[in-house]
Design a protein around this nucleic acid. Sequence first.
DNA 1: GGTTTATACTCGTGGCACGAGCATAAGGTG
DNA 2: CACCTTATGCTCGTGCCACGAGTATAAACC
Lengths: 420, 420
Amino acid sequence: MASDGPRRSGDAAPGTGTGDRPERARTARWRTAADVLARVRGEPGITRAELARRLNLTTGSATEITARLRELRLLSETPAPARGRGRPTTVLAPHPSGPLVLAVDLRQEDWRCGLASLDGRIHDLRQGRHAGREPGAVLGALGEVVAGAWRRHGDRLRAVSLAVPATVRDGRIVQASGLGWGPVELGALTARSRLPLLVGNDATLAGVAEARTGAAAGAGTALHLLVEVGVGGALIVGGRPVTGAGGTGGEYGHMPFGDRALRCPCGARGCWDLEVDGRALARHLGAPAPRDPRTYARRVLARVAGREAAGDGLDDVPIEAAARAAGVVAGSLAAGIAGLVNAHAPDVVTLGGLAVHLRAAASARFGAAYADGLMSFRRDLPPPVLDAAYGDDGALHGAVAVGLDHVTSEAALAAWADAL
Amino acid sequence: MASDGPRRSGDAAPGTGTGDRPERARTARWRTAADVLARVRGEPGITRAELARRLNLTTGSATEITARLRELRLLSETPAPARGRGRPTTVLAPHPSGPLVLAVDLRQEDWRCGLASLDGRIHDLRQGRHAGREPGAVLGALGEVVAGAWRRHGDRLRAVSLAVPATVRDGRIVQASGLGWGPVELGALTARSRLPLLVGNDATLAGVAEARTGAAAGAGTALHLLVEVGVGGALIVGGRPVTGAGGTGGEYGHMPFGDRALRCPCGARGCWDLEVDGRALARHLGAPAPRDPRTYARRVLARVAGREAAGDGLDDVPIEAAARAAGVVAGSLAAGIAGLVNAHAPDVVTLGGLAVHLRAAASARFGAAYADGLMSFRRDLPPPVLDAAYGDDGALHGAVAVGLDHVTSEAALAAWADAL
DNA sequence: GGTTTATACTCGTGGCACGAGCATAAGGTG
DNA sequence: CACCTTATGCTCGTGCCACGAGTATAAACC
């Protein structure tokens, strides 16, 4: 098969060769090691004995492989607290001088970054506000962040993983309406350090985080939907997002679930986007289109929740009207979700951003519209719709996850070992 | 456990160990063999030298592995036609006494089946009409087919792969509206032979066939849509369909792209289903709902194409009206497809069944609605929409593909070798 | 202090792919 | 027709990995 989405190396696609040297065995050899590291990440604090059971390793193999990984500065072992009889085992943890991933979450107003070790824990969290909105200024600041981490950690830093509030194609930004950006190249961020740069959409990465270790943990197929201005999201299968050609998928807000008479800024018609955010609330309230639909929506929903703020500019909006509008919008959201559930049959649906508040503001209406939109055979056991566990931190944790996937791939482990 | 980490060749369940013995190495050992067989299937008639290049094998490894696979009755080698200088190589083909898969396509009026060898070629194609519509009668006949193949081929038969025009959950039919069936167990088909039984939706499997070796061959992400009564389909990523929990996904026809006022027999509202098939054509023509929407639609579209058949019961329908109705319906189909393309960003879209004729009957309207529904950044290079290459044979070929995936899995190869 | 239990360690074995060198079967050339 | 060129196949020693069986160890239990 041709090159495509899930870029990583040790992948599905019984396709053509990797194109590299005859180094087939060189990477294949790391298969078990990669599995071990994945397990350590999935269950931080796992003991060696437990690991061996999970992976069906004999004790001999476990001894060998942990020794190897310790030697390679990938894992460290510390005595585990005794539990009952038997010889004490050890807890597996990332090695203190093992590989690191720099995860960066670029947001509309600011950025955040953190260094992640192999267990997925984030250290050294930093943040900063954008000085200006221009791509050059923002990327300059991020470039400094990358350079700083590279200076401090040298070869321990193995990848940079970036979450952006934008449509991403082949590692480049196609458009970021929230930032007011058109196409932006990102390669400069790691040009000097030559680190692998992984770029993903923020909603997609938040979905990855939820599916791996968040509210949808354990789900084979999970659907994450993030509402802010419009709807973004991702379908995550086996922990990997389905992002399509070039990674531009996940634009769920541009399915025609809405009024065909409305033209969306994206260029299409009837987009779901227009039915579920602040713009929709304003329409239903007879107000003009808000300049900042996100803040506007939060204010309206706060009003519904009885937390009216003075000077929110909504003094003339009665609570009943706000509640009605929220109900309609929550219904549109739920109906669309039901359609997506019909099509994709996720085990769980997770909600992020405004969607959480929208549902809370009109939960009965939401639940009714959800049930009403499901095919009847799905109603016996409909996929639960859960609030995101990571809140606003999903994108950063998702970036960590994707970065570590890369670093613990067979090829990357082989490279790490080669470098001693 | 949170599905996570780099997922290897295996399958879904990224979770705990396989649950089997410590037979980790026993199956892992077959990784390269599985890759070789996958390649032989992907490129029937491939030579040994070409294979080695594709998989980055040294000539020594190629010698060893082909010898092993020949010994195991998985592959056979025949001299390849010489091409230029150099020592002649051999063509790899399935072994004459290698494993076989029985693929069965259960359709509304009849069934078809064939035996497939490792290269995916179908031998010994048979078919039969259903004597009665009752599940018992139909499954009885299919049981005979399975038993017959098992008698004839014994242990060479390694799996039965079944395509059904139904919603499938965990290998069972949930409902098959075309057949008028409710839930149906299928395990009895292979209870005696104890063969693995793989069950899939027909539209999903047709999509698999198109994505592997049909019109979408080479696509990393492909979307297949089949219109008959309503719309079925599948998103295929890396050759594997995204079928969700229990395999019930792919019900694209039940996304609310349509008129929210219309209640669908499925229980939901506004289903796309209702906008794109014979029922929609009848509505737009002011005719009562047809009893057999599929035949009705074919007749209307034949009329549009100028192939009016006497006695088709449409004598009072002017061609212009039929063309108008077809245009509206083709537009609805295209608009929905555009929405799905926005959400999933496939490399290619393939059409099956009525969808092909619908588009042909109103190609301008279809093309316009498709473009109009795309996000503007997708319009530069929109995914091509192609007619299915396999026509009505997609489901059977897809069943073959899935069956062979199973048979050439590492675990199945280990089992085949153990049985000598 | 002895027993039980769970786990770790040692070591010989088999399997696989590799790499280097040699062998072979064609086409091309004079 | 002898000889060269080219592409490929074959042999064999090597390194690496996980296995399995047996042995050793460190705790809790009695």
